[in-house]
């Protein structure tokens, strides 16, 4: 759905509830999609990325921005179950799709086994890469479960996380955590 929204703004009044949103007279589009299992509609400029949509239009800041252009994996979310880089995915490509972010993985009293395992194994230090890392790991585990595979190797985990850079841990405890979550979930 295309709409041209013109916002008359006085110079001294850049009204904004979330940063960067709805400032300029520009073409916006309504994106309808399923976000963390809930239907969602949001208006975004048509040249925004999915990461901008999540962080700036919706306010879900769990997906991080580390490299600007698809090099680090901190922005990884799942699109129809598969991990993708939201910082180079166009927001409009989420239309009618299922998007899952770290916020949907588990909250409050019901953390996901991955979140528990990352905490218990000391797999998160600064935590900036962790949301993206867990989205890749969650996809790996679910894909393997769907394929009814019963074993997981460290190399498989490392390969699946090969697009997520971490600068704190040296990865060892991250691989431990994914192994632990896998054991928990199967």
């Amino acid at each position: 759905m295309k709409q041209n929204i013109h916002i008359e703004q006085k110079r001294d009044n850049p009204s904004s509830t979330s940063p960067d949103f709805c400032h300029r007279a520009r073409q916006v589009e309504i994106v309808s999609f399923v976000l963390n299992s809930e239907p969602c509609q949001v208006a975004v400029p048509s040249h925004w990325t999915l990461l901008e949509l999540l962080r700036y239009a919706i306010g879900l800041t769990g997906s991080k921005q580390g490299c600007d252009k698809g090099d680090c994996g901190a922005c990884t979310v799942r699109l129809n179950g598969q991990p993708v880089l939201s910082c180079i995915t166009l927001a409009l490509d989420a239309t009618e799709q299922h998007i899952d972010t770290v916020e949907g993985l588990g909250m409050g009293g019901t953390p996901h086994p991955l979140q528990n395992a990352f905490e218990e194994c000391g797999a998160t230090q600064c935590g900036f890469c962790t949301p993206g890392m867990m989205m890749s790991a969650a996809a790996l585990i679910e894909n393997k479960q769907k394929a009814e595979q019963t074993n997981i190797s460290r190399l498989e985990i490392a390969t699946a996380l090969g697009g997520n850079l971490c600068r704190c841990t040296g990865y060892r405890k991250i691989l431990d955590a994914v192994e632990r979550a896998w054991a928990e979930m199967s």
Binding site: P19, T61, G62, P111, F118, E119, T124, C126, P131
Partner: peptide
Amino acid sequence: AMDRLTGVAKYTDDLSLPRMLH
């Protein structure tokens, strides 16, 4: 840790204030 693992923790770029400029 759990705040960082659930996206609850607000890093600097996750913060925004009313009428914030860039």
